[in-house]
Design a protein around this nucleic acid. Structure first.
Ligand code: MN
Ligand code: MN
Ligand code: MN
Ligand code: MN
Lengths: 225, 225
DNA sequence: ACTAGAATTTAGACATTCCTAATCATTCAA
DNA sequence: TTGAATGATTAGGAATGTCTAAATTCTAGT
């Protein structure tokens, strides 16, 4: 009754898709996992045997409580590792994901605990994502997407959502990282770019980029009428 | 043409047995790998296709140059990881092996390099075993087994050879670790225990234990007649 | 309500790595 | 020199995780 690495990856992916879509379809899962649809169907049957998902033919899957716990355990490993690689081994934030993706399945609980303590019991990873607790609790934040802010709005970047290393490098070079204070100067119409202020500099950001950035808004001054 | 984790483990084990025995028999390999003999035979055929071993039916195997390089690469990962776990995460020397055994197959060359530098380009692991260089060079030391020393002999412990966590804990608690200075006080006959001096204390060690300890002898005083 | 097209599942296959049972080769001792 | 014991290989099969091709089910548009 061992949870294999493949099973862990499916559970982790189902967790992510379920957050986004509710019930998870076989095809969306297959695409997210980069496998053919029948592979996903086959794995669903296996995950049912392990009581980690509820699955109805042609109707998609959702995680059981057990499945969610396993997913969160793997996500905890992943995010602790990302932070450890960045903080203790000097990895850049665009390089941590790939390495953590393989390590997450092989570290022991002892390793997890030592890293957790070495990092000072952190709660967020280098991209600002919350780190699940040992008990599998995960704070749900609902920050605004930078793409939804209007000119004049300002706040603090809280998360830069999973994106390509290239995009992360681009954003990082411009100071668009968690905890940076940001202000929207302008927002061009027709899905045009946002002009934003970060620190001393100003940047034009396409909507695709802006959508990946989550901001905790500061209440706007002079809006209290 | 990917070298799988199973292949890496076989190559590593063949390397170790070849150092000890020369040509490696299927059965000794199977025992060392904790698999049935047919599994070892099957893997030999596969390793031949990858040109990592030379194998003649009923005659055993030896590594090719390629096979040896791969084995040393994995051993480098293993020993760097053992040292890193001990030095940077506070693992005790009896716990590092198990964790390194799984991590060694999944770390990147980048991770290897960063750990190597973080540790100050080390040359020996927590058990005193030499760490192969990036290029796959490995110094061959020929230290004496503590079991072979005679009363009066003294020297420095250089290696404590692969043994059980229990044994390592026992030896560690008594200061019998690499770089410790040791002197043989007495050696009981009939395969009896050795009485040794380490630091300020004296211990009686059975031959089985003593065989695992490798010592660099100091030339004995007053032996120059 | 039908039906075409999309989504999903089933069928069958392959690569890995391991196993047990049976067969074959080697070796050593009489 | 021969045959029994030991060691090694072959034969056949299971589990895992993937694939393509074919069949099935669902869903929307008419
Ligand atoms: Mn854990
Ligand atoms: Mn992350
Ligand atoms: Mn390496
Ligand atoms: Mn070691």
């Amino acid at each position: 009754m061992k949870i294999t690495e493949a099973m862990q990856n499916y559970l982790k992916t189902i967790y992510r898709l379920q957050e986004r879509d509710g019930v998870v379809s076989t095809s969306s899962l297959a695409i997210a996992m980069s496998v053919a649809a029948p592979s996903a169907t086959g794995m669903m049957k296996k995950l049912v045997r392990y009581r980690t998902v509820r699955y109805t033919r042609y109707q998609g899957v959702v995680l059981t409580k057990t499945g969610r716990q396993i997913a969160l355990e793997v996500i905890r490993h992943h995010r602790l590792l990302e932070l450890y690689l960045a903080a203790s081994l000097g990895y850049s934030w665009d390089a941590v994901h790939e390495e953590a993706e393989r390590l997450e399945h092989v570290i022991s609980e002892d390793f997890e605990e030592r890293v957790f303590e070495a990092l000072g019991r952190p709660t967020r990873d280098p991209h600002g994502e919350p780190i699940p607790t040992r008990e599998g609790a995960l704070p749900v934040w609902n920050h605004d997407s930078l793409a939804d802010l209007e000119p004049g709005a300002s706040g603090t970047i809280r998360q830069v959502r999973d994106s390509s290393p290239d995009m992360l490098r681009y954003l990082g070079a411009r100071g668009l990282v968690p905890d940076a204070v940001i202000r929207v100067v302008d927002k061009a119409p027709f899905n045009g770019p946002l002009t934003v202020n970060v620190g001393a500099s100003t940047h034009a950001l396409g909507r695709d980029l802006a959508r990946h950035i989550r901001v905790e808004m500061r209440p706007m001054l002079g809006e209290q009428e």
